[in-house]
């Protein structure tokens, strides 16, 4: 309503004959044009052209593409590597989501106890989040090193055998997951800390008057009050995990024997190493559909839970 009133005032700017630039500014279109330009060129257009590309045999080697109908999609559905790598992505998501909720929650609750050294706790949990992924993987590649790594030195010290963490199919995905939790936990930790401090103090005071002890307050006030943020964290976590690429590419290149290769790395390999852009685009859209379905499902699950 205010904006309607605003429009009526526009002619006042130049006695009814404002220059067209002034009129454009007053209409507000110019405010959104810069954003809409980059939005259209670098988001909307790739979405469209990728969709079209999925129906062609476009190649990185530059030969002209021709239309292949649903060929790429038919091939993708029958391609075991698509399903295998998609499963790796889902597996990675399943392994990381629970620790990415429970550990930051625990760390935030402990930090919130108010012991001295707050600055240090925040620093050690959050600092890894500020590291570029390459630094993270160099750090952990060296921790995991089969011969000279700290982890195997520790295993030997307690009498266990050395483990080739990143070269053994049984441990590679787990190792990648541990690195990821170490790297990104700080973000969820901060969200939990913020949420903890938003819980109104009077709830605790009222509970104390009613004779509730510390544990009772925690189960009946603190944890229920964190329900909404936990739902949000789980959704953010799911979306982030399904896009996993960087740390796996840098730690294992998807190996050993492709046992950690996530679907996004398969897209990359097909498109940029195999030169088959059309097929890579088709796989992307399949994955996109899966992500949308999963996140909508989760959103629904959590919005029902919190009401």
């Amino acid at each position: 309503m205010t904006s309607a009133a605003l429009e009526q005032e526009i002619p006042a700017a130049g006695g009814g004959r404002a220059p067209w630039t002034t009129r454009l500014w007053h209409s507000g279109v110019l405010f959104v044009v810069p954003f809409l330009l980059v939005f259209a060129i670098f988001l909307v257009w790739p979405i469209i052209s990728g969709f079209v590309m999925g129906f062609t045999d476009a190649s990185l080697n530059g030969r002209p593409a021709s239309f292949v109908g649903f060929g790429n999609y038919v091939e993708a559905f029958g391609d075991p590597e698509v399903w295998r790598t998609l499963w790796h992505t889902v597996l990675f998501t399943l392994i990381t989501t629970l620790p990415m909720v429970v550990i930051p929650l625990g760390a935030a609750l402990l930090t919130n106890l108010g012991f001295p050294g707050q600055w240090l706790y925040r620093m050690s949990f959050f600092a890894p989040f500020l590291l570029p992924v390459t630094v993270v993987t160099i750090f952990w590649g060296w921790m995991y090193h089969a011969d000279f790594g700290l982890l195997n030195a520790a295993m030997e010290a307690i009498g266990l055998d050395r483990v080739p963490w990143l070269q053994d199919e049984r441990y590679a995905m787990l190792s990648v997951a541990v690195t990821t939790v170490w790297w990104t936990l700080g973000f969820n930790y901060l969200l939990y800390l913020a949420a903890l401090q938003d819980i109104p103090q009077h709830l605790y005071e009222a509970a104390a008057i009613d004779g509730a002890g510390a544990w009772r307050s925690m189960w009946s006030i603190t944890l229920p009050m964190l329900g909404r943020i936990t739902g949000l964290i789980a959704v953010l976590q799911l979306i982030a995990s399904l896009k996993v690429f960087d740390q796996i590419y840098l730690l294992t290149r998807g190996g050993p024997n492709g046992s950690t290769r996530p679907v996004l790395l398969y897209v990359y390999d097909v498109g940029f190493s195999g030169f088959r852009l059309g097929y890579a685009a088709a796989i992307s859209y399949l994955v996109f559909a899966v992500i949308v379905i999963l996140s909508l499902g989760q959103l629904k699950l959590f919005s029902r839970g919190s009401d």
Partner: peptide, 9 residues
Amino acid sequence: VPGQLLIVP
């Protein structure tokens, strides 16, 4: 929209 999936186009 997960931007990472748009790398190819």
